[in-house]
Amino acid sequence: MLTVIVILLVVWAILAVVGFALEGLLWLGIIGVILFVGTVIFGFVRRAAGRRNSRP
């Protein structure tokens, strides 16, 4: 699961950079940033839930 999250983070970061680099694709940069932040939050929540469930 961690691999999928890392891959998604890289893809969202690339989309954000491309979106901000090209004038007409500013919307793509904004969406990339939103998805990046959402994926980070999702990763932290899943990780915290996994730690909580693994304790006896």
Rank of each mutant, 00 (worst) to 15 (best):
M1D: 04
M1F: 12
M1V: 01
V4P: 00
V4M: 03
I5Q: 04
I5C: 01
I7C: 06
I7K: 02
I7P: 00
I7R: 03
L8W: 08
L8E: 14
V10P: 10
V11N: 11
I14L: 13
I14G: 12
L15Y: 08
L15E: 04
V18M: 12
V18W: 07
G19Y: 11
A21P: 06
A21M: 07
A21W: 07
L22V: 11
L22F: 13
L22P: 00
L22T: 09
E23L: 09
E23F: 13
G24N: 11
L25M: 09
W27R: 05
L28M: 11
L28S: 05
G29C: 03
I30C: 00
I30V: 10
I31Q: 04
G32F: 04
V33F: 06
V33Y: 02
L35V: 11
F36T: 05
F36Y: 01
V37Y: 05
G38H: 05
G38A: 04
T39V: 10
T39E: 15
V40T: 09
V40A: 12
V40H: 02
I41L: 15
I41H: 06
F42H: 12
F42P: 10
F44P: 10
F44H: 13
V45E: 15
R46E: 15
R46T: 10
R47V: 06
R47H: 09
A48E: 13
A49R: 12
G50P: 02
G50K: 05
R51K: 14
R51N: 13
R51T: 14
R52Y: 13
S54C: 15
P56T: 04
